[in-house]
Structure formats: C-alpha cells, structure tokens
C-alpha cells in the first residue's frame, strides 16, 4: 500500500510527511516527526494525553488519522512556549507542583490553553468539567485545578 503525501501546518510551520492510511495523527507526530511532547496514554480517546488542536478544535490525536491533517492547522505542546520562555500555564503547573510523572501534563497544558481562550474566567467547576477528558494517575487533580485557576487569573491580569 502506497504511503500518502500530506501537506499540513504544525505550530505555524509548513510540514510535509508521508503516512499509511491507518496511522493516527499521534503516530505521525511521535514516530515520523519526532514531536514526542504529545503523549500516548490509552490510544482509544479516553485519557487526553494526546490532546492537540486541529483547526482550532481540541481533539485526541489518537482518534484522528494522519491523512486528515491535509490542509489543516495543527497545534501541539511544542508550540505552547515562546522558545525558552515558558507559557504562563506551564509556569503555573510548575509552581503548583501540578505534575508528578508528567505523562498527562502536555495534554493538560494544551487543553487548559484552549479552555482559557474560550473562557478566560472559568469557575472551578467549569474548569473541572472542561478538563474531565484529561486523566491524571498521579496528582489527584486538585493541584492541577489550582494551577489552572491561577494561570487564568494571571492571564486576565496581563490582558
């Protein structure tokens, strides 16, 4: 089976790749493009570790075929910081110790960024519901939610 040639944009840069029709966007990011910040937890859409944006929609990259990236704009964790300058959300995750093993963290940061774009002033309940698709084995979630609420406040102050 011939590989398919795909033209896409990832974190604002033009990217081309070849992939098999059954490969997921997650496979392509990690195995072909060496963008290993996006993690695989379950590969079945349940854990959110693989969260990315595709044309501004928050999705699980394990439930997107690589070939669907044709002509799309993809956003991954690698595009969140400004070079060496961490994004406020990343900084707040560090300050609040909102991670332990870190497998869930890239997905949570990508999801939190989208949450705060859609709703800069969420209630704690809204934040918890929005992030319910991002599972964390380690933290018990409270520190994550504290980091998210603090990031939201800081970003509102800066805006």
């Amino acid at each position: 089976m011939a590989k398919i040639h795909v033209n896409t944009s990832i974190n604002g840069e033009v990217v081309e790749f070849l992939c098999e029709p059954h490969e997921t966007l997650l496979d392509v990011l990690r195995n072909d493009l060496q963008l290993t910040g996006t993690k695989e937890g379950c590969a079945s859409g349940d854990c959110g570790a693989c969260s990315v944006t595709v044309n501004d929609a928050l999705v699980c990259s394990c439930l997107v075929l690589g070939v669907e990236a044709e002509g799309a704009e993809i956003g991954t964790i690698e595009g969140v910081s400004n070079k060496d300058q961490l994004h406020v959300i990343q900084q707040k995750f560090l300050e609040h110790a909102a991670l332990q093993c870190g497998i869930c963290t890239p997905g949570l940061v990508v999801s939190t960024k989208k949450l705060l774009e859609e709703n800069p002033n969420p209630t704690e309940e809204q934040a918890r519901y929005y992030l319910a698709g991002n599972l964390c084995r380690c933290t018990g979630y409270d520190k994550i939610i504290r980091a998210v609420m603090d990031a939201a406040e800081t970003m509102r102050g800066a805006a």
Binding site: V59, C60, L63, S111, K114, Y130, A132
Partner: peptide, 9 residues
C-alpha cells in the same frame, strides 16, 4: 457525548 476532545470531532 464524551469529553471536550471527543466533542471536537
């Protein structure tokens, strides 16, 4: 239906 991520699709 599903999570925010699933809602996106």
């Amino acid at each position: 239906i599903g999570s925010t991520q699933v809602q996106g699709r």
